[in-house]
Design a protein around this nucleic acid. Structure first.
Lengths: 182, 182
DNA sequence: GAAACTATACAGTCCAGATGGTATAGTTTC
DNA sequence: GAAACTATACCATCTGGACTGTATAGTTTC
């Protein structure tokens, strides 16, 4: 009677472990225990550790895609909509669901090739952002800044206080609207 | 009579392994082999794996500090010098010495607390950047953008082509000089 | 100035425990 | 009755790191 499938629970458990204890602590036993699933149950869903990490990356990729692509469709303003969608999504994620980036860290740790799906998604977004009706360099800088925000959250490097974070976001979003002057 | 101390070689070997194969491949045996040092030799210099990673982080911290702080001292223009130093340093590192960020990944993997020295360094820089004579939000955005560039290189997410990267850097640097208008 | 000793910088081996993964037998849910 | 598990035992391999051994450069003692 899996209301929330155990598969989901396993992914969340794995992400949580990576987030809190680092990827060295990501063992099959630990994930099973955290998810309150037997080891057999884990291996029923993910036949290997690599498969688990693959699932983590895919999960992350799905969530990001849904958010970004959904966001572009709701945006009534054509110009800058990809850039806006990216900024909004990444910013939101960096607040809500920090564990989600765990998939990325885990993949880098175990087998960097597993990052491919995410890399392709990102490459696609970067293309859109460069053709978003804005100055391509300026749009790219906005994108990079949000990624920087994300990096700072993941590793705790020069994190901004709430006020500053808010002002940064507002400024970034402002700049996704075409300017009158220069 | 160690010309280049084996300690250095060990650190470089460890960073290379993390960079190429991910941190799961960072075993004492692998590092020793890569550095052409025996395992005993490794443990002479670093009494534990954690100590090795600590060394990696410290090494990274040192290099960054030297670069950023050195750069501020050479800068003849007072306004924006920290922001400029940061942008220049991180950009340079992202090209030259990609393995250097391995320390960060390794620390996150093994024991996130090991990141502390780097975190303190970054917090200090962030303070300086916010009081750099520029608009504090704008300066912070520049800083974040370079970090984003760094993230994109580390994980291969939406990497920019050479031309775009160059234009981005130039634009970022331009913006570290105070503007006449608005 | 030679012998005795110390410190440093490694080499190489060994082992207890952890880990990924297999197997198997049974149980619950739809 | 098949899918989705639980529970547990088991194994081969890997890993950290303790431990012992050794070469050499420098220091002290007489």
């Amino acid at each position: 009677m899996p209301r929330v499938s155990k598969r989901q629970k396993l992914l969340e458990a794995a992400a949580l472990i990576v987030h809190n204890q680092g990827i060295d602590a990501l063992t099959l036993d630990a994930v099973a225990k955290q998810a309150e699933v037997s080891k057999g149950g884990l291996l029923y869903h993910f036949e290997s550790k690599e498969a688990l990490v693959k699932g983590l990356v895919q999960h992350m990729d799905n969530i990001y895609r849904e958010n970004v692509e959904g966001s572009t469709k709701e945006d009534s303003e054509e110009t800058g909509k990809w850039t806006r969608a990216f900024v909004n999504t990444m910013y939101k994620q960096s607040l809500e669901n920090k564990e989600i980036s765990a998939g990325m860290l885990a993949a880098q740790g175990i087998n960097p090739d597993l990052l491919k799906p995410l890399q392709e998604t990102y490459d696609h977004w970067q293309e859109q952002i460069q053709q978003d009706g804005l100055d391509d360099v300026q749009a790219t800088i906005l994108r990079l800044a949000v990624d920087g925000l994300w990096l700072s959250e993941i590793f705790g490097l020069g994190t901004l206080d709430q006020e500053m974070r808010k002002r940064v976001l507002e400024t970034l979003l402002e700049q996704t609207h075409p300017k009158e002057k220069s």
